[in-house]
Amino acid sequence: MRPKEFVYHRARDLDHALALLAEHGEEARPISGGQSLVPMMNLRLARPDHLVDVNDLGLDEIREEAGALHVGAMVRHERYLTDPLIRRHLPALLEAVHWIGHPTIRRNGTLGGSLCHADPTAELPAMAVLHGARIVLASTAGRREVAACDFFKGAYMTDVQPGEMLVSVIFPCPQGAHSGAFEELGERLGDFAMGSFGVVLEHEGGVIRRAATVCGGAKMTPIRLPEIEAALQGQTLAGLDAAALGDRVTGLIAPAGDFQVSAEYRRALIGELAGRALQRARDIALNAQP
C-alpha cells in the first residue's frame, strides 16, 4: 500500500499549474485534498508520474453573479455548511453535503476533486447534474465550459482532457420561491450511497413552476428524470402525491445490483428515497408559503 514513485510539483499559481499539466499531459494529476487520489495511489490503482499540488492556487471563492453561484474548484466541502449563499440558493446541495463521508473528508476534500473523481454515487456530482451546472475547465489553450450532464462519462470517467484542470463550477440559482431536498442511504453513516435522490422545486402561488431531479445509484453517473420533472411541472404543491411519484421513479430506473445490494432492492430504495425527498421539498415549500 505504497504509491509508485512520482514527481511532486507545487504549483505557484494557476498558470504554473496549467503549464505543468500541459508539460506532463496524461502522466500528471492535480492534487488538492487527496481524499480519493491518495488511497487510489496507495492501492496503485492510480499511478500518476507527476502530481501537481494546486493548494496554493486560491480558487476558493463562492460568489453570486448573474443569477448563478460560481464555486471555485478548491472550495472544501465543509465550507458549504456555513455559507449564506449556499443556504439561500442551493438548499438541496446543503443537505447533500451532510452525507459526504466523514468530517475529515469534508474538511479536506474539494469540489474539483470530487467532480473529477466522479464516483457514481457521490453527492457533489449529483448536485452538479441536479442544478444543470456548467463546469469550467482551463488549460494553457484557454477555457471551456461543459454542461454537467456531458461532463460525467461513466464511473470514474469525465470529460477532462490531458492538460486540463477543473477551475470552477457555475451553479444556476433556482429562480423565485424554491425548495430543495436530498435523501440518501448507505449501510453506515458516511458510506458510499446505495442510492440517492435530490430535487429542486421552483414554485409560485402554490404551483410548481419548474422542477429538477437527480438520481444517484441508478446508473454509473447521476441522472436527471425528465418524466418526473414534467409530471411535477404545473402541479399544485398541496396536491403533490410524493409516494406515487416515488413509485413512478421505480418504474423508470433499472439499477444494477452488486455483491452487497440486490438490483431489486436498489431500485425500490431509490423510489422510496425519491418519494421522501419530494415529500420534504413539498412540505418545505408549503411551510414557506405566506
Binding site: L185, E187, M194, Q260, V261, S262, E264, Y265, A268, L269
Partner: peptide, 8 residues
C-alpha cells in the same frame, strides 16, 4: 443482516 437483506 444488511439493509438489502432486511428489505428482502
Amino acid at each position: 443482516l444488511t439493509a438489502s437483506v432486511l428489505w428482502h
